[in-house]
């Protein structure tokens, strides 16, 4: 059985159910699923077609690392498959290799995609509602709106890495890029939606950034498409084996 290593990049941790992919048993078959909510209650959708490779990888990691088949996983903007496994009351996130899926989900007779495409098949523009499934990796536009950061548990530098108990890394784009013009380029599309208060936004496997905003009725959140991240003005890809 292969040995899996803890993932050295961002561990999503506390995100909403909508921000996670899951492997579930659907009609006797393990399938990739997402939770979906358009304001009419939470449901889950199963991926159309076959993505058995991802399903198998997720289940192998869950089993190999002490868990059981099925459960949550993530795919980030670097196409890294990240699989959390519960461990001592918390979750450790393992690297599951590179993947490049093109998930589609059927909803009310139409196909939903995680690409920035509207129901009419036309590309979304920044500021449009994000109607697709919402799995993604959480980042934060800093208060003041002039930086982006993420927080994740710190790992040891040795191989294989282990968790440094109680230690959290806060990684700031301004420190990573050290170029104010590049930081401004990265921040701008998020700032256009969230403003100087900042707040959380998500980036999915296609590099699409979207963010929840208050719908105004006190009940629900709308998700707004912010645009595509620019890899030249973004966090560097975490090291993987």
């Amino acid at each position: 059985m292969p040995e899996y290593s803890l993932y050295r990049g961002l561990w999503p941790q506390n995100v909403s159910k909508l921000a996670k992919y899951g492997v579930r048993m659907v009609n006797g078959e393990w399938k990739v699923t997402v939770h979906y909510d358009l304001g009419e209650g939470l449901m889950y959708l199963a991926v159309e077609g076959s993505e058995t490779d991802i399903v198998d990888r997720v289940n192998q990691i869950k089993q190999a690392c002490g868990g059981q088949s099925g459960g949550v996983f993530y795919i980030n903007e670097y196409h890294h498959l990240i699989v959390p496994v519960a461990h001592d009351g918390t979750s450790h996130y393992f690297y599951g290799g590179r993947v490049n899926p093109d998930f589609t989900f059927e909803f009310e007779g139409a196909l939903l995609t995680t690409k920035p495409i509207g129901r009419d098949g036309q590309p979304l523009s920044p500021g449009d509602p994000w109607i697709g499934p919402r799995p993604g990796i959480p980042y934060v536009l800093a208060a003041g709106g002039n930086d982006i950061y993420f927080e994740t548990p710190a790992l040891t530098d040795v191989a294989p890495p282990s968790v440094r108990a109680g230690v959290t890394r806060k990684v700031m784009l301004s420190k990573v890029l050290r170029d104010p013009a590049l930081v401004a380029r990265a921040v701008r599309p998020i700032w256009e939606v969230r403003g100087h208060h900042g707040g959380r936004f998500y980036v999915n496997e296609h590099g699409s950034a979207f963010t929840p905003v208050d719908r105004g009725d006190g009940n629900c959140l709308n998700y707004i498409y912010c645009g595509q991240i620019d890899p030249a003005a973004w966090f560097s890809e975490p090291p993987v084996l």
Binding site: Y149, V167, T168, R169, K170, M172, V176
Partner: peptide, 14 residues
């Protein structure tokens, strides 16, 4: 407590 690093900062809870 936290300490600045070249990528941002490291926060420790103990």
């Amino acid at each position: 407590w936290y300490r600045p690093t070249d990528y941002g900062q490291e926060e420790t809870q103990e």
